[in-house]
Amino acid sequence: MRPGWQAILRKELRSEFRQKSGLITTLLFSVFSVVTISLATFDLTVSPQLAAGLLSVAMLFAAIVALPRVVLIEEEQGTGDLLRLTARAEDVFWGKALYNLVFMTLTSMVLSFLFLGFTKTALAIPSLFVVCMLGSSAAYAGSITLCGALVAQASNRSALAGVLAVPLLLPLSFLAVSGLRVALDLKGGFNINNGMIAGFGLLCYGAASLALGPYLFAAVWKR
């Protein structure tokens, strides 16, 4: 019997908990980026608009550092062919994308706590903040898993994964900034409806990335 997406997800979680390299790298990246932001703005009051932009950029780069690894590692360790023989491409995508979703949700939680603490930014609408974080994590998981598969057999693959993923995720960053600046401050004169539209847009973008992903991933993975 072929393993389903649950088996792939379990495999990814087990290997991550055994090695913990991805977790440690991403955690360190989150701490470093927040400390760097805190150092760069030590004599400034970070406005909610600026805070939204900085947090979005930190999340984008944390995702690019952490997420393609889950696909690239199969080619580096030579286990990709075995996976191709034993599992359907759609299951591989779902297993890896869901693992990336779990990983990214954890990363965004850690990053948010650190960021809000270090920059002393308060939350105005926590529910909108959570929606923005979840929508971004879903879109990052879907898009970057696909980008990882696209560059898996290319030369200089790690750098190329970032080059491919950043332009695809830039529109998402705009929506994240629009939503987060409302979630961080209501006194700045930002329209709540615009924030809600951006939050809903992020969720839709995430859902569309995950829905289209398996079809596009299958075309690359089967070769």
């Binding site: 898009s143 696909l146 696209l150 560059v151 057999q153 290319a154 030369s155 200089n156 693959r157 190329l160 491919l164 332009p167 695809l168 995720l169 830039l170 529109p171 998402l172 973008y205 569309a208 990335s209 289209l212 596009l216 991933f217 075309a219 690359v220 070769r223």
Partner: peptide, 23 residues
């Protein structure tokens, strides 16, 4: 430019073109 095999280049860039359509 990063892929050398013709068919792989065509497939991967084709998938990217479709994925890029949404953004």
């Amino acid at each position: 430019g990063a892929l050398t095999d013709d068919h792989r280049r065509a497939t991967n860039s084709g998938v990217y073109a479709l994925a890029a359509l949404m953004p």
